[in-house]
Each structure stands twice: as structure tokens, then as C-alpha cells.
């Protein structure tokens, strides 16, 4: 297992390098550069040439790539061209925001999804099950932005009980301590639900199916024959087995904790990775874009690795 982990880690390094290289190449070959963002304001060509030179944009891209790779290997992701601040410090600001939003979304989707699925299998094909099937299918199919907009419409404007955007109210920016935390929770509510709702649909659909399958298994019948209560049958026997594939789902959601959901971030003006990367791409802010790409790729690789290890840990049939 140790060797296996080592091999996977080595492969992960290669993947990160490949993704970084491809991204750098694409960004370098894309037309336009950061000095042209002000084109309609007629910035003097000489000023622009000077900036190009300072950013190294007058050198061929392989040379720029080599310089970037060398610095990154030394742990230096450079300074953002647009914000004049170290990339690591910028990412350090947006990553926690994204991670907070996405992890709460993930928790909501798991807790909600499991609760819905358990309710459904109490009486399969009963009224509650049918209604919830329709509801979860709808939630699963609904685009996140639509859910976000409906939430906004109903709970921020029609019935203004939640703030429509941002992490803090204008006055909340000046709060400290407990009031600031409450202000943050208040602002988290709608975006977390927007992320969670589609996820609840997915988890519930998945789990309901596998729970029904597990209930047909002989070990469940055996448990019932031993006189276990129905609750114990479901919770202690069927659920752990039915939930195995969820580990893969969670593992695959881990990158999302880092890369963020652009749509939710834009709709709720949430200052996370998705927005930062989108802006960096439009502005051709190469250091920021590359830094974000590397961090997100590492998250994907690590997320997959952790999911596989966890799988092996909980399922003795899996041998690494």
C-alpha cells in the first residue's frame, strides 16, 4: 500500500506538471495580453511596450515558461500582474472563502441527501417516496444558477430575510468577533443552499437506489432473521454498504472545495476562486491564473488519492 501510494503520488506530480504546462501554453498562445486591457482608452504604445518588457512578454513563450517553472519549483508563484500582490497571498485570501462555502455546501448535500434517502426507503413506492423522487429529480436537474436566482428572488427580495450578496453587510465590514461571525452565517445561508440543493438531489437518488439493492441482500435478511430492529438493519447494516460509493463522490467533490463554483460566486458576489480565476483569465493575468491552476490541480490529484485510500480503508475487499 505504501508503494502504491508512492506511485500514485509520483503520477500526481506528473499530472500537475502536464496540466500546468498545457495551461501555460494555451494562455501564452491566446491572443492579447494584459497591457491591452485598456485598449479603448488609448494608452500610449511606448508605455505599453515598457510594461511588456517588464513582464517579459517581449520574450518567446518557451523562455517565459522556463522562468515560470523554475520559480514555481522554488515555491515562488510570482506577483499578480493586475493586483501587484504575491499570488500566494491573493490565493490565500480567496481559497478560504471558497473552501468555507463549498464545504458547508458539501455537508448540507450529504446530510440532506442521506436524510431524504432514509425517509424514502421506509416505504418504497409509497406516497412520500414518490413525492420525494419527483423533488430530488427536479433538484438534481435544476441548474445551480436557476436555484440561486429563485432563492434570491424569494428569500432576498420578495421576503427580504437573507442578504442577496457578499460575505458581509456594508456595516459588517467594520464588525469584529461574534457579530461578524453571525453576519457571515447570515450571508452564507443562500449560497450554501444553492450549492447544496442540487447535491441533495444527487446523493438522495444515488443512495435510495443502492439502499434498495442492499435490502435485497442476504446479509440483511439474515440480520432481520436474527431479530434486529428495522432501524438497526438500515443504520448498522445496509447504510454503511450502500454509502460506499458516496466516498468516491466526496473524493470527486474535493477539488470543488478549491476551485469553487463560478456561477454561485457570480450570482451571490462571493469572493472565491472561481471568480478570481475567471477575472484572471479575462485580464490575461498569467501569474495568478497559473498559480490558481496549479493549486486546483493539486487538489484534484490529492482528492482522488484520498478517496482511493479511504475506500481501501473502509472496504476490506479493496486491496491496494
Amino acid at each position: 500500500m505504501f508503494l502504491w501510494t508512492l506511485r500514485r503520488a509520483a503520477a500526481g506530480v506528473v499530472i500537475v506538471w502536464l496540466v500546468a504546462t498545457i495551461t501555460f501554453t494555451l494562455v501564452s498562445l491566446a491572443p492579447g495580453d494584459i497591457t491591452q486591457t485598456t485598449a479603448e482608452q488609448r494608452v500610449p504604445a511606448a508605455a505599453r511596450e515598457r510594461w511588456r518588457h517588464d513582464f517579459g512578454l517581449d520574450r518567446p513563450w518557451p523562455a517565459r515558461y522556463a522562468a515560470w517553472l523554475g520559480a514555481s519549483l522554488r515555491g515562488d508563484l510570482g506577483t499578480s500582474w493586475a493586483y501587484h500582490r504575491p499570488v500566494t497571498s491573493l490565493l490565500g485570501e480567496v481559497l478560504p472563502n471558497t473552501a468555507l462555502l463549498a464545504s458547508l455546501g458539501l455537508i448540507l448535500e450529504l446530510v440532506g441527501g442521506i436524510a431524504v434517502a432514509l425517509t424514502q426507503i421506509r416505504r418504497p413506492h409509497g406516497h412520500a417516496d414518490r413525492a420525494l423522487t419527483a423533488a430530488t429529480l427536479t433538484a438534481y436537474a435544476a441548474p445551480t444558477f436557476l436555484v440561486g436566482l429563485l432563492l434570491l428572488y424569494f428569500f432576498a427580495f420578495r421576503l427580504p430575510i437573507f442578504p442577496p450578496s457578499h460575505m458581509h453587510s456594508p456595516a459588517g465590514e467594520l464588525y469584529r468577533g461574534w457579530p461578524r461571525f453571525v453576519d457571515l452565517l447570515h450571508h452564507l445561508a443562500l449560497p450554501v443552499v444553492a450549492i447544496g440543493v442540487t447535491g441533495i438531489g444527487a446523493v438522495a437518488r444515488y443512495l435510495r437506489g443502492s439502499l434498495l439493492d442492499e435490502r435485497m441482500e442476504r446479509y440483511v435478511t439474515a440480520a432481520r432473521a436474527r431479530g434486529c430492529s428495522e432501524a438497526r438493519v438500515v443504520w448498522a447494516h445496509a447504510l454503511p454498504n450502500a454509502a460506499l460509493p458516496l466516498i468516491t463522490m466526496i473524493g470527486m467533490s474535493l477539488p470543488f472545495l478549491v476551485s469553487g463554483s463560478l456561477v454561485v460566486e457570480v450570482v451571490f458576489a462571493w469572493p472565491g476562486m472561481g471568480q478570481a480565476m475567471y477575472e484572471a483569465a479575462l485580464a490575461r493575468d498569467v501569474p495568478l491564473l497559473m498559480g490558481g491552476t496549479v493549486v486546483a490541480t493539486v487538489a484534484v490529484v490529492v482528492g482522488n488519492l484520498v478517496a482511493d485510500l479511504a475506500y481501501a480503508f473502509v472496504d476490506p475487499r479493496v486491496r491496494l
Partner: peptide, 18 residues
């Protein structure tokens, strides 16, 4: 100054007095 990327979000908040 509040950053609201979507113009429609700006308009909705303007109408709501936020």
C-alpha cells in the same frame, strides 16, 4: 463601494434600496 459582478444583481439591489 460594493462589488456586484452582475448588472442585474446591481439593479435588483438598487430597487430594493440596498
Amino acid at each position: 463601494f460594493r462589488v456586484i459582478p452582475e448588472i442585474s444583481g446591481q439593479l435588483a439591489q438598487l430597487a430594493a434600496g440596498q
